[in-house]
Simulated scan of single mutants.
Amino acid sequence: MSTEIGTDEEPSHWHDDIGEDVGNRLNWLRAGVLGANDGIVSVAGIVMGVAGATSERSPVLVAGIAGLVAGALSMAAGEYVSVSTQLDSERAMLAMEAEELERMPKTELRELAQIYERKGLSHELAQQVASQLTEHDALGAHAEAEFGIDKDNLTNPWSAALASMVSFTVGALLPLLVITLAPHALRIWSTVVAVAAALGVAGFASARLGYSPWGRAVLRNVGGGLVAMGITYAVGAIVGPHV
């Protein structure tokens, strides 16, 4: 993904690669990156905690698989409910706005013109823009100007839920496979290194998707994951012998 900006002679917009379906694309990209990150940290914490309590592989594997399945389903359900609530709100606002346009079109036209006046247009130009947009698509114009909603591109809860579930599963598989397959003497450090690398990649990806500096994002991601693993391992090591 390139964020290079062109010139008038060679125009190139930083957002060209996003495309027109910005809302839905950013929605599932956000869900995907966050899902992968949560999968890595959550399951790494679980397997590290169990590994701190026992040297046997089977409890670690069982706990890791349980955490993976539960986490993936929880992420999918949570994302679906959250985005569905947003979608219900968007549909309700569109329905109310459509009723207002039907019952008081002149008032709504004045309201739309005032919005563009507040954005810097002259009174005459704002009236002209509002009139033309209303003739073209009154509901679409009001939805975008008043609520920032694209009525033809509403959020999709299924894509967000699927992205979260798949990405959580992919992220969770890494620490689970590493700690299960690595030699016993190296399983802890192998997992730490693998998880730190994966979190670094996830932090870099999230920063690039958001067009923000990636250095801080990587440090936050890796640092938070290492702290979580360290604490859970310590808890397992302390509690395990007494259970």
Rank of each mutant, 00 (worst) to 15 (best):
6 G>N: 06
7 T>A: 06
7 T>Y: 05
7 T>R: 05
21 D>L: 12
22 V>C: 03
23 G>R: 06
23 G>H: 06
26 L>M: 15
26 L>H: 11
28 W>P: 01
28 W>Q: 04
31 A>V: 05
31 A>M: 12
31 A>G: 08
33 V>K: 00
34 L>P: 01
34 L>M: 14
35 G>K: 00
40 I>T: 11
43 V>D: 01
44 A>K: 04
48 M>D: 02
50 V>K: 00
57 R>W: 02
59 P>D: 05
62 V>T: 12
64 G>K: 00
65 I>W: 00
65 I>K: 02
66 A>I: 11
67 G>E: 12
69 V>S: 06
70 A>L: 07
70 A>N: 07
80 Y>N: 10
82 S>A: 15
84 S>Q: 14
90 E>W: 01
91 R>Q: 15
91 R>G: 02
94 L>V: 06
99 E>H: 12
100 E>L: 15
104 M>W: 03
106 K>G: 10
107 T>Q: 12
109 L>Q: 14
110 R>I: 05
111 E>A: 13
113 A>Q: 07
114 Q>H: 13
114 Q>Y: 11
120 G>R: 02
121 L>E: 07
122 S>W: 04
124 E>G: 06
128 Q>Y: 08
134 T>A: 13
134 T>Y: 07
138 A>E: 06
140 G>F: 08
140 G>D: 09
143 A>L: 08
144 E>S: 15
148 G>D: 08
149 I>R: 02
150 D>R: 12
153 N>W: 05
156 N>H: 10
157 P>G: 07
158 W>R: 11
163 A>D: 07
164 S>I: 01
167 S>T: 14
170 V>H: 00
170 V>F: 13
171 G>P: 05
172 A>L: 09
173 L>H: 02
178 V>N: 03
179 I>A: 06
181 L>E: 08
185 A>C: 05
193 V>W: 01
198 A>K: 04
199 L>W: 10
201 V>L: 14
201 V>R: 03
203 G>S: 10
204 F>N: 11
210 G>S: 15
210 G>C: 04
211 Y>G: 10
218 V>C: 09
219 L>K: 10
221 N>G: 15
222 V>A: 13
226 L>C: 11
228 A>F: 04
231 I>K: 02
233 Y>W: 15
235 V>Y: 00
236 G>S: 11
238 I>G: 00
238 I>Q: 05
239 V>E: 07
239 V>R: 04
240 G>M: 07
241 P>R: 05
242 H>S: 10
